[in-house]
Design a protein around this nucleic acid. Structure first.
Length: 462
RNA sequence: GUGGGUAUAGCUCAGUUGGUUAGAGCACCAGAUUGUGGUUCUGGGGGUCGUCGGUUCGAGCCCGAUUAUCCACCCCA
């Protein structure tokens, strides 16, 4: 076989031992918080039936799903002249029946429907697995990345929304982040605004436009809204809402006034108040809400499916897209035929959080070394002497390894140094004869001679 | 899908208006030290200058194409 230059597929990464340690630190920290709030872990397959995934993420989303080519003579089944016409999109279902999962929420919905008779509602689950998107990679955007999802299905209590705020706050704080914003909105408020303007059918156009406020500015938003069918009169009403000022209480007060004519809009407001009331009651801390939570009606993410509260988390310490997001779906499982089951959940973007922690140097230093003691290898005799000791050390719970060949001592010590092994045990002729083994502390450089029993005792307590 | 930047050693990069043998730091290997790493000193290996074509007496440098990669937009974690 011809050799080829080794390279990674676009948007993917290898993880070295050092990187895995940091990644696991993130996963462990997040997991611990999830578990504390009563969520249980599940996993689902890396790929699903294509049908399970298509049509769930909008037209744009469908394009970004990695499809898996059928096996065998996959072109044989393609009907008629589809091949000559080169109609790619129409061709896809004929040549692909499987695809890599695009997120964790849709597979979870499928899981819930398939297991509806065995799960107890409300069902609280978390899931930490990679997802794949055929997006163009750039800063903070990968084609393979991990999501850490936490969802509850079958409960309409807004307590969950409140707890998600606390989960975000606790997990991110535990990771060392100090300045981040949990943006909060509610789909019903957006619906209400469109109703008040008398143009409920334009809600999507409206939210897409005002979502861009911080990117294209007020003038840009106004231009876009006029293009999309809003009148100058509408804009007069809209403008004060888009540019809401003040703290959360002030914003809600202003919104209430504007949304007076819309029952749906007022319900959205009430939901936000309930959520924030829960957070306040749980923590007894109003400052937490003021510091980390920001009611932001320009937040419109995932509008296609969210029906209640919408979340998005951004760090203010570095420039990075959102590091988390989520919301409530009133009909999470409806697309799989199970009606009337509500779901709410949020997600952490572990890979982006990694980049943020790296940039801020927030990873704890040298969290854990793999091997505690390296036994040197002088010659065959020393090796034979060392083998039973190696076994004893491991049985005593000491992570130990024997250098596999009788290389120069310099090389063996360099190996220990590169691997940050704190102790090296030197066993040569003297040591074998006296039974006193030389233990070198690699950090201080000090060396002491110990009996086997003392050595094991020393290493197990340190 | 749209727009821009970059491509030179394993890594990060320098390389003058186009001119002899393409450099540095780090990393790696060896020696100084035959049983002592990390520090120091000395030496060494390693390059189709992304690829293909063009201009020129002469191209790492200029031009074109192509590929890869990064950044921004759309969208998203």
């Amino acid at each position: 076989m011809a050799t080829i230059k080794p390279s990674l597929a676009k948007g993917t990464r290898d993880f070295s031992p050092a990187e895995m340690e940091k990644r696991n630190y993130i996963f462990d920290t997040i997991k611990q918080v999830f578990a504390k709030y009563g969520y249980q872990e599940i996993q689902t397959p890396a790929f699903e039936n294509l049908q399970t995934l298509t049509g769930k993420y909008g037209d744009e989303g469908d394009k970004l799903i990695f499809k898996i080519l059928n096996s065998g003579e996959y072109l044989a089944k393609v009907p008629g002249n589809m091949l000559e016409e080169r109609a790619s999109v129409q061709l896809i279902p004929h040549i692909s029946e499987k695809a890599l999962r695009y997120d964790l929420t849709v597979p979870f919905a499928r899981y819930v429907v398939m297991r509806q008779h065995e799960i107890t509602l409300p069902f609280k689950r978390f899931q930490i697995q990679p997802v794949w998107r055929a997006d163009r990679p750039q800063r903070g955007r990968y084609r393979e990345f991990y999501q850490c999802d936490v969802d509850v299905v079958g409960s309409d209590s807004l307590l969950h929304e409140a707890e998600f705020i606390l989960i975000y706050h606790e997990a991110l704080t535990n990771l060392g982040l100090t300045d981040f914003t949990i943006k909060l909105n509610n789909r019903k408020i957006l619906t209400g605004i469109a109703e008040v303007l008398g143009k409920p059918e334009l809600i999507v156009a409206m939210t897409v436009a005002i979502d861009k406020l911080d990117k294209i500015g007020l003038d840009g938003v106004i231009t876009e809204l006029l293009d999309r069918g809003f009148s100058v009169d509408d804009l007069k009403k809209l403008q004060p809402i888009i540019q809401l000022q003040g703290d959360n209480i002030d914003k809600i007060r202003q919104l209430k006034r504007v949304l007076e004519p819309s029952a749906t809009g007022l319900l959205g407001i009430e939901e936000l108040e309930t959520v924030m009331g829960y957070v306040e009651r749980l923590t007894g801390d109003v400052a937490l809400l003021n510091r980390f939570v920001d009611v932001d009606i320009t937040l419109a993410r995932g509008l296609n499916y969210y029906t209640g509260c919408i979340f998005e988390v951004k760090t203010n310490e570095v420039t990075m897209g959102s590091i988390g997001g989520g919301g409530r779906y009133d009909d999470l499982t409806g697309m799989f035929g199970l009606k009337g089951l509500t779901g709410v959940g949020v997600s952490f973007g572990a890979d982006r959080i990694y980049d943020v922690l790296e940039e801020l140097s927030l990873f704890p230093a040298g969290t854990r070394q793999s091997t505690q003691v390296l036994i040197s290898n002088f010659d065959k005799l020393a090796e034979l002497y060392a083998l039973p000791l190696l076994y004893k050390l491991r049985n005593a719970g000491v992570a130990a390894e024997l250098y596999p060949t009788a290389a120069k001592l310099k090389k063996q010590l360099s190996y220990a140094d590169a691997k940050r092994i704190p102790y090296v045990l030197l066993i040569g002729e003297d040591e074998i004869q006296s039974g006193l083994l030389s233990l070198k502390d690699m950090r201080s450089g000090e060396q002491r001679r110990l009996t086997e029993a003392n050595l094991i005792a020393h290493l197990t307590e340190s």
